[in-house]
Design a protein around this nucleic acid. Structure first.
Lengths: 343, 343
DNA sequence: CGCAAAACTTTCCGCGCGGAAAGTTTTTAT
DNA sequence: ATAAAAACTTTCCGCGCGGAAAGTTTTGCG
């Protein structure tokens, strides 16, 4: 590699023997130039360490090649897994993902959108916090920049929503639990941060009534994103008080279940299917660690891949098309029952 | 808010009644202008929706206000926790964090650095993959852009390194385990992806020899970042074969321990301290979920906060100072023994 | 009140690229 | 071989800001 430093595209075009506009074309799409010119440019790239200035490019392009990816909380492995898949799909499509976590707070969520406004992304994939989100401001944002929601829906916000069919998946696991043992009580947070929690509760009630059982709801105190702790504390409490009205507990999500399992273990309660067990616990989401709880957690596995693929595809279409979809689109994917040892 | 749209700083300066250069000064540092001018500008900001163009700013500034933050794998809650703290500190200092995950692969790690090169960050905080990293290329990167390493050290790369004192922390937990029961075998991956793994192994050997015990090392097959699965599979194997040479196992990290605990549970082995227990398990790192394993995991808690604070502070000094430190600085922080129920 | 320092205005240049128009060369197809 | 199409070159403009110099106004202080 030559030592002489290339300062800009003009100079690079000179050393590669191609005009600057053609070099510019090459960088925007290598396949848009003749093979002979492409190889000349690539030969020059081998020799000189040049790359177009990111900021100059984006200042002048009609659109940036950035897609914002905002999730409520990266410390939750569920979102870590989702973002990893989405990042891959975005890169594949020739865009640059920009990952932002709201760290569980609506202020940070708005700050993230503010940052994105400055970046002028071509589109944004947003998993909103849900209940605590500043919905109006998010809606205003989505008016300006093509936005697709996933995981948690905000009514009427953004061009589309992709998520899990909580109604159906909760129905399915309630039915499984009822068939294989006592009807479950529903274990959730009193003040959930996630919008899906409400749908899951009502889905539970509906499923129980359909099966002619009385729905019983157990609400854990505590706020914030430390679900495991909340599940653990409430678990200790109800086990100590023996106030659990069924030997089967369906948790609103896997992280609560992880806490409850820890509480059961420490209380000396055997969890699982067999005769020796006195408690069955099920979760929802198929958290990356659900396989390694003790016992392993029976849960509903969300279709990560479908949610990611459709979300990314839709934002790409939105960007391509230039126009918003004629109608807001809501798509729910089915989750799958994963039978493990806890229920 | 007025509907008339402000296209650039010129126009915004006009409506606020201040000259453009002064407005520019304001945006770079609100405290650098007179209070009366500041309030005029802020009054205009209330009325008009203007923000300086991000790309134009960064094209013209000598330095961007971005700090790159590269971690090996965001799906590992350990790094999710670290990045969260660091992001906060970076924002506090008036910079913008740019979070990139290498997703466990050296190719992605290099791709991340390539992306960063285009972004021209003022500095970079890098937790390298370690053993599999393309060290030469990372070193070349760190020559060009102020870089501080954390978590995993690469000899001589970057201006500074901050991490845990594995030597000491492993020594400490080995000593604890020896005092409170049988000397531990060391459980690690045969092909670790993390650089710390090697230091921990040698620290274990040294500590055992110091205490006049024979070091015994158990290496799990399997590659990649699915540590829990690797720990689980090997755990099932050694338990079934009864080939464990001690009733005490020190795992190279908490995620391996989580897998081993699951294997023990499923094998019907009671883990913990009491007489009824036949196995003790300890980990290292104080993974966010270590509290909720069954039984809860005894482990060494890394000083997340110190590592983050010093890393960020050092990169800020490097940026401020303009010059690299006279000498590369390596600082190791002590971890703390967290006694829970598994050992 | 007077003076120096601080803050501001005016004016100009430059950053490095995208985009577009008009003209030239090369390729492709008949 | 020839015409049309494709690819390229030349030339120009503009994006929205930072930076700097020179001149003007305001502020703070004795």
């Amino acid at each position: 590699m030559s030592n002489s430093k290339i300062r800009n595209m003009e100079e690079f075009a000179a050393v590669s023997g191609i005009s600057r506009p053609t070099v510019s074309k090459y960088f925007n799409d290598p396949d848009s130039v003749r093979k002979s010119t492409r190889s000349k440019i690539e030969a020059a790239l081998e020799e000189y360490d040049y790359r177009p200035n990111f900021y100059a490019i984006n200042q002048n392009r009609r659109q940036t090649k950035t897609i914002g990816l905002v999730v409520p909380n990266l410390a939750d492995p569920f979102f870590a897994a989702i973002t990893r898949i989405m990042e891959g799909l975005i890169v594949e499509a020739g865009f640059n993902p920009l990952l932002l976590s709201s760290h569980g707070g609506p202020e940070q969520e708005l700050a993230n959108l503010e940052s994105l406004r400055a970046i002028k992304p071509a589109g944004v994939l947003l998993a909103p916090l849900g209940r605590v989100s500043a919905i109006e401001q998010i809606a205003a944002f989505a008016e300006q920049i093509p936005t697709v929601l996933f995981d948690a829906n905000l009514e009427g916000v953004g061009a589309a929503f992709f998520g899990s069919d909580n109604q159906r998946s909760i129905g399915q696991i309630v039915e499984y639990l009822c068939r294989s043992g006592e009807p479950p009580v529903f274990f959730e947070m009193k003040h959930p941060v996630n919008a899906n929690a409400y749908r899951r509760q009502s889905a539970y009630v509906e499923a129980m009534e359909r099966l002619s059982h009385d729905p019983i709801i157990l609400q854990a105190d505590g706020v914030g994103w430390d679900f495991e702790k909340i599940g653990y504390d409430e678990g200790r409490r109800v086990i100590a008080q023996q106030s659990l009205q069924s030997n089967t507990v369906l948790c609103s999500n896997d992280r609560l279940a992880i806490g409850l399992l820890a509480a059961a273990y420490e209380s000396g309660l055997q969890v699982g299917l067999g005769d020796k067990s006195s408690l069955r616990v099920a979760g929802h989401d198929d958290h990356p660690f659900a396989r390694y709880t003790c016992p392993s957690l029976t849960t509903m596995s969300q279709d990560y891949e479908a949610i990611c693929r459709h979300s990314v595809q839709t934002i790409l279409e939105l960007i391509d098309h230039g126009e918003p979809l004629s109608q807001r689109q809501e798509t729910l994917f089915s989750a799958q029952l994963v039978m493990r040892n806890s229920a």
